[in-house]
Design a protein around this nucleic acid. Structure first.
Lengths: 242, 242
DNA sequence: CGTTTCCTTGAGGTAAATCAATAACTGTGG
DNA sequence: CCACAGTTATTGATTTACCTCAAGGAAACG
């Protein structure tokens, strides 16, 4: 018993592009159902050829790659609205892992129908490409942070980026947003050690710019955060939602 | 006076997926012409909304992002077969720069026809998404290198990746491939300083594993290179060529 | 030839890693 | 209800991988 796309709890946010009635109808067929997962549950695994695509509706997750010796690179944080498994969807091979951090609700799509989508819904196919290009764009930005920025700059960049995204999801309340990750997760996303990440966060807290504790990120000075993080362009508010 | 896609000099390499006659016909229409550029010429600029898409046919280039203070992150090296400008194509906004390093020959496509492609050529649209997902996959790998690997591991990863790609393009001769970049370019792609990159290359040279000089990369022990670079999976040999 | 670009190597400095110890919680089982 | 182990955050002390600075050499070039 799953919610129809036209009643999707997040689709009507200004962050997302509206769909036509015909497109909504198609999506309701494309959608196989919903899935809820417990915290810390693997959703997609590297190497697997998953028969499914997902859209995160609720909750928080992580995308990461592992090296043979256990080192972990977090590629991105997964927020509501994010498409999961496009890589496996089109390339038939996953090269990273996705897992839930909190409990999550996911929209489930059938990979086999992907071809129908490309044949009959060119606009939606275009949107898929847009999403893939957008992920690429984000990873390029992350690469620039890790490769070129100092630890302080990187942390500011990440926090600003996260805050803006959750704000666009209307999850902000009095300058604070939920951020239910561990410091280790942020560290692994920025190629920093846990200790140094902690000390950098302490610095931002003492300067009253941002403070992250008990699963919430409080941003007192978003402008300072964006400047210190050398954040360039703001995300457009018309992203496609699958 | 440009070459027809069916006579494309690289399309028949086993690296690339073959097209049907109908698809070739469409591509020949989609293709506006060819462009040659001098070394060190900007091809696409950040911020611009380019009316064109390109496929590199010949020569070498760079994709990079700049920070306001001049720091540069090289996102990838551009080799023959690479699609250029997909981001601008679908998102109408470029967030990185592309420039030639050597003289290049580019296939030019008309961005306005992109929509025709999505409407009439679902297979080609799928291929575009595949390409975008593939770029995303690559950047995830690069992120893991920069974020988690040591300088030596990163350099090995990069050289192995480059060698394999140029090998697949049949540009290898007696274990060596052309690599007409500066050490600074490699350094900027791995988030390392020029000096340290140089010293790391010297180490590989003295260990007789690989040596890069005079615009050529000689790989004596590709296996050692891949192991030291923790290279995980080899690229599939069926990539779409636009 | 002087100038510029790129590569190379040595010396010294530093941002961030590692090591180590403690505290605050959480859950678990006796 | 308490002892205990496991997880996460925090902070100080020490080490190190990599950076910056500096200088020289080899090509390429106008």
């Amino acid at each position: 018993m799953s919610i129809k796309c036209r009643f999707c709890p997040i689709r009507n946010l200004p962050l997302f592009q509206p769909l036509t009635d015909a497109e909504l109808g198609f999506m309701e067929d494309f959608k196989v159902g919903e899935m809820t997962v417990q915290p810390d549950t693997p959703i997609l695994s590297s190497g697997a050829a998953s028969p499914q695509l997902f859209t995160a509706l609720k909750g928080f997750g992580l995308r990461y790659r592992l090296l043979s010796d256990g080192r972990r690179q977090v590629l991105s944080f997964v927020f509501p609205g994010d498409l999961i498994g496009l890589q496996a969807g089109v390339m038939n091979q996953m090269t990273h892992n996705v897992e839930s951090t909190t409990a999550m609700t996911l929209c489930v799509f059938n990979r086999n129908e992907l071809w129908t989508l490309f044949r009959n819904q060119p606009q939606r196919a275009y949107d898929l490409t847009w999403i893939a290009a957008s992920e690429e764009r984000f990873l390029g930005e992350a690469l620039t942070a890790i490769g070129q920025k100092s630890a302080l700059e990187s942390v500011c960049w990440a926090l600003a980026r996260i805050y803006r995204r959750l704000e666009a999801l209307h999850m902000d309340e009095r300058k604070s947003v939920p951020l239910p990750y561990r410091q280790q997760d942020l560290a692994d996303s920025l190629g920093l050690s846990l200790v140094h990440t902690n000390k950098t966060l302490a610095k931002l807290r003492s300067r009253q710019i941002a403070s992250w504790s008990d699963g919430r990120l409080q941003v007192n000075d978003i402008q300072a955060l964006e400047e210190m993080g050398l954040v360039d362009a703001i995300e457009p508010h018309n992203r496609p939602l699958m």
